[in-house]
């Protein structure tokens, strides 16, 4: 294979994947919901991966899916879901002229890429993908040789940068413990040693005539119990009086 021959299968793969990845990119910036944007982006990434594989770079294609689609986008989705299902982004520009500037800079980037890459690559002799992969006995072996010989410094510096970023995130999210975290056993012992009843509190309305939150539960002997009313209601005195058999309305604490 020399240079620019394109067979039918390659052309079909290119036109399907290229169209889909551009579609994904457009969907990414036009969707209103952040999760939809993330999905469009995943579509773009998967199509790029297929293009890499079609270009005899199977390792890069698989790593693209595992790292970008599988880990990075999954983390994005994770954060979006933690933030909330229905939180929509505000579409007000915080920087004046942001939109115009971004369009201009985008155009500039396209020009630089097309012109720069075009002029840089136009004079190169092309040996063909198969020949390039065969140099070290295969695609994976060739990548491994390049990373661990010619580009070793770049590779190590990049990994140091990433580890620093991860450490930074950990430091920012770190909360210092004043004392050792109590274990499950210690918590259990403390619970039984304390003044409170170790079991569940009675639910509101148990043995009562009503199951509203502000109706105190009745103990088996018919007296209302204070523990069944939420503390907020108790402190506001929002507690319903309870009638017992002789017609007298009583309140918790009366007969105890």
């Amino acid at each position: 294979m020399t240079g620019y021959e394109v067979n039918a299968g390659e052309a079909v793969v290119f036109w399907v994947c290229a169209v889909l990845s551009v579609l994904g990119a457009i969907g990414l910036i036009t969707s209103r919901k952040a999760v939809h944007s993330a999905l469009w982006m995943a579509l773009t990434m998967i199509n790029l991966a297929i293009l890499y594989i079609a270009n005899n770079a199977p390792f890069l294609g698989m790593v693209q899916i595992i790292v970008y689609t599988g880990a990075v986008m999954m983390l994005f989705l994770f954060v979006l879901m933690v933030v909330g299902v229905d939180s929509s982004d505000s579409l007000i520009e915080t920087i004046r002229g942001q939109r115009v500037l971004s369009i201009l800079l985008g155009l500039l980037l396209i020009v630089i890429l097309v012109w720069g890459l075009g002029s840089a690559l136009s004079g190169l002799p092309s040996v063909g993908l198969d020949a390039a992969n065969r140099l070290d006995g295969g695609n994976v072996q060739s990548i491994a040789r390049l990373i661990f010989t010619d580009y070793l410094l770049v590779f190590e510096v990049t990994s140091a940068l990433l580890i620093t970023a991860a450490m930074g995130a950990m430091v920012l999210a770190h909360r210092e413990h004043w004392q050792p975290k109590p274990t499950q056993a210690e918590l259990s012992i403390a619970r039984f040693k304390g003044d409170e009843h170790p079991g569940n509190r009675p639910n509101p309305g148990i043995y009562a005539r009503h199951n509203a939150v502000d109706t105190p539960a009745l103990l088996p002997d018919g007296t209302p119990t204070q523990a069944s009313i939420p503390g907020a209601l108790r402190s506001r005195a929002d507690v319903q009086p309870v009638e017992i058999e002789d017609g007298r309305a009583i309140q918790e604490g009366d007969s105890q």
């Binding site: 390792f59 595992i66 994976v140």
Partner: peptide, 15 residues
């Protein structure tokens, strides 16, 4: 050459 990575990739799409 990278078919085990392919399984990892597909698993991550499945999730």
């Amino acid at each position: 050459p990278v078919s085990v990575l392919y399984i990892l990739a597909i698993a991550s799409i499945g999730i």
